[in-house]
Design a binder for these strands. Sequence first.
DNA 1: TTAGTGTGGTAGC
DNA 2: GATCGCTACCACACTAA
Length: 895
Amino acid sequence: MAPPKISDWTKAKNGTNANKSPLKFDDFGIYMRHKQSKLVEICKDKVDNALPQIFKDCICYINGYTSPDPRELAEIISSRGGVSIQFLNGKTAVTHIIATQLTPRKMEEFRKCKVVKPQWVVDSAAAGKLLPIFDYSIIDLAGNNMTLKLTKPVQMKQPPHKAGQDSDNFILQFYAKSRLHHLSTWKSELKHHFQSHVTEYMTQKASSSQKDRQIIAHIDFDCFFASVSLLKFPHLAQKPVCVTNSTSTTGNSSADIASCNYIAREYGITNGMWLGKARQLCPDLQCLSYDFEAYETASKALYDYILNIGVDAVLPVSVDEVLVDISSLCYARVNGEVSLADAAHQVAQEMRQHIFESTRCTISVGIGPNVLCAKVALRRAKPDGYVVLLDSASIDQELGACSLKSLPRIGPSLSAKLSQNLNAHTLSDLRAYTLEQLQKCVGSRTGEVLFKYCRNEDDTDIRIIPDRKSVSADISWGIRFNSLQETENFMRSFTKEISRRLKEINMKGSFLTVKLLIRAKDAPIESAKHLGSGKCDSITRSTPLYMYTDEPDYIFSYAWKEVLAVNAPPEELRGIGLQITKLVHQDYEDKQQRLNFALLEEKGKNNKRKSGSDDCDIPSQIDLAVLSQLPPSLQEEIRKRIRLGKVVDAGHKEIEDSPIQVPSQIDPLVVAQLPHEIRKAIEKDIATRGEKCDVLPRLSQVDQEVFDALPEHIRQEIMNEYDREEKEVENEKEMAADTEINDEVTLSQWTILKEGLGENISWEIFITLPKSVQVQTICEHHELKKRHKAVGQKPGMRDTFAKLKGMRMNEDDFDNFLSGWVEARKDIGPDYETEKVIGKYISDLIDIEGNRSTAINGVKWLDILLKGCGNQLWHTTIKRLQRTVIDKTGCEVIF
DNA sequence: TTAGTGTGGTAGC
DNA sequence: GATCGCTACCACACTAA
């Protein structure tokens, strides 16, 4: 970018000038623009052509107190062709900022500008040319500032105050400034980065890493954020300093302190403390902004170094903290004169020295035979030191004296429990207890860990970095919604965010957990922290997604359903979290693409699957692209069937342990609608697994009612597919399939059967019944179905109708009822009697049961069912029902 | 027992 | 002006069958 030219600037300003209008009393912005353009005019008047025009390309902003004073400086600048301004409006492109000193805040603000001392102006004028600014700069130019072009940093668009207003922007801004978000994502990224590295490394070094002679170093920057942020303000190094988001200079701020230097800590200030409280403890506290880029640079320096010295394993703990196996490094130095401890000392010193040289920040190092000891040693080493704990006597002593709170995995809750129940405060206190006693107090796993801690043992293996198991996003700041619509908007943006994160790491997930923070009954409406969550009740709900996905809309549909199901008033929401689990890599998913419901056709009914045998795994997903092209009703049908079929996660280890595989089948309609080539590919795929499988189902397996509901062109396509195949299958005992069981009951048949019987029989049980009983059951079902058809109702409709009147339905029942109603009367139109009952039911759901979601979803479902229906009566009915919901909920924009 | 689900705790600055 | 209270993972309690 070329530096701004004064001519451009004056042009722009003149443009503004041309629009000069009478000022309103309070229009400060316009006032400033007038004032500035006026200044330019004055500057032009002051040009002295007898003087060299050395400042002709300069726009200088004179900040605060200067010597010579601003007026005099302005005089020097303007007489030599430059422009000096005394106000910044955020849009002006200044080339130089003239200042004697800057507050930390301004320093940060002007980080990317040329900030020079007034003497530069004076000296340049005297020299008759612009002097290099190096000797006059008041910002450390050793960094990369010089490479950056100048202009005042563009003012960020102010983020919306709250999440409900402009969700996309809010989420973006929120995460850009959240330190905890950065910490977490850095950690994940580093882990991911080192995962591959470690694997590679470990195969090379397999022999050198015997656990019994392991030496672990725990390395950590001292007050990382504060140290790094301070690099740009060396004059503050001896003052109490903290890093915070807050821009307030006084008052009782509720901004968190991310990090503070050791001088500030002497006042009792700690990380996470609110700025207001910290100021009470130390009124002289200096605040610095976050500098995430600089943190990354320092972090990279640390990790680069670690990788280059030949360590045996690396486990990132955080952006500034790492566990390394330095066994080989140490043992290589041991000889007649150098003991193992000596070697460890040398390594620690070298590390500290090198990192300080490359980052100008200090690190501390703790060294021990395992992670526990290294951590304890590190705690002793801080700040700016190192401790080696390798002989058992000193380990015993150090560990014994350790407060429980300072040990890994023991936080406030656990230490309180140990203190209250066992009166234990240090590890030596804990040594008095048996394994059973500890387990009884804190649970079996934690009890075992503590028991080992007492004996200086720690199983943590830093060579193992497991695969990512979940991807989540949480926001519990700024969440203030005024309506369900705002909540929905936010959820849409939020699912986009989680989808983005999945895509970023090339993964898809098949299980969703939604977490809602709802203001606790006894919490005030407004939390003590500005826009914070305050005290909340947390509610989590989870649901399978029935396929591996990273699609925002698809995830949204399930997430939103869960949110509605919680039925919390939008105004009471204080936090929202989404988590996707059961992940697979996209690469894996690609191989398994397309077709997919768990089509694990079990050959022997009671055959347990051989543990660990993959050869009969058939992918359990369906391509979203295919699914999304189907009519909504069919999509829903498919999802319901998958739900019934209990999709088995083919990529997941659990499958190996699962004792019973739920038998299910490819949904015939879905298969039939797949493009020919894909179906062929699937057939081939299945064939290579040694299974006999007709991918195109027998026509008899196709649910005729669903088929009839399909649009004409899709039906035609399906029929073409059948034509293309051998036609004998088509005619093979169509009727027989209805009355007898040839092989096994398919899931499609089962779905209908179950619905017809209206009973709670599980597939697993049914399949174990003697064949004769199965046949009898199915025959009974068909009888039942015929009778119901005679009265023009779907099986189960009467019962459901009775339930509807008696308010005893769940959401699925209600949806099924609506489906049945539509199916029975799609062409002739709705009967008013039923509409009345439904209207009453909806009203009562909302009024009496407070269950908005079932009511809303029901009407939405009805709308979906009748998409494309030509009968106007139905649409009037939908409108009436929608109006009922709107009136009852008070939300105008639900539909 | 076992599996599934919801909740809570911990770590980093 | 405010303010950006995240994220991954583990362990445990509870429930249903």
